[in-house]
């Protein structure tokens, strides 16, 4: 119509890149409705007897090594699986099948919970068993908003990568 089309390829490329990045930014600013209110509280699974956070781990494939649970309260620490800026940390001898790890001191939230099965007990993050709260599949790395849980109980299923 009245507008003149862009004929320069360079300008077109810049406009296209801007539209792509702008669209991506817009889409990333949309947060899922359920994730804006942390899961544990919205599902009403707060345990009246137990104080704090209870972590139920399932799918542990062997009793080798340790099950290491790390709890984060900030997005950046979760994203890097920080070994320094966590709020709580427990290591227990692995038990095949299901395990429960209690964090009675964790009463605030929201928290993101990660579990690592250190099968060879070398205290290193190798590609063994992993799980994060809110994780949807083996290769999903949930952002903090989705991983976030409130005190109560949270269930995590292990994924193994080797």
């Amino acid at each position: 119509m009245g507008l003149r089309p862009i004929t320069s390829l360079a300008v077109s490329a810049v406009v296209t890149a801007a539209l792509m990045v702008g669209g991506g930014w817009l889409a990333s600013s949309v947060r899922t409705a359920t994730d804006s209110s942390p899961k544990a509280s919205s599902q009403g699974n707060r345990d009246p007897v137990h104080e704090g956070l209870r972590v139920d781990v399932s799918g542990v494939r062997s009793e080798l090594g340790n099950i290491v649970v790390t709890v984060y309260d900030e997005a950046e620490a979760l994203a890097s699986y920080s070994t320094e800026s966590y709020v709580a940390y427990r290591s227990q001898q692995a038990v095949t099948g299901a395990m429960t790890i209690d964090f009675q001191e964790l009463t605030e939230g929201p928290y993101a919970v990660t579990v690592h099965h250190d099968e060879n007990a070398n205290w290193a993050y190798d590609d063994e068993g992993w799980s994060t709260s809110g994780q949807r599949g083996a290769y999903d790395e949930p952002p903090f908003e989705r991983a976030a849980v409130m005190p109560g109980s949270v269930s995590l299923e292990m994924f193994y990568y080797d």
């Binding site: 990045v21 669209g23 889409a27 949309v30 947060r31 899922t32």
Partner: peptide
């Protein structure tokens, strides 16, 4: 580049 959740909004933008 961005962390994009899969919602109908993001599907439409995509």
């Amino acid at each position: 580049l961005f962390e994009i959740e899969t919602t109908w909004v993001s599907v439409i933008v995509c």
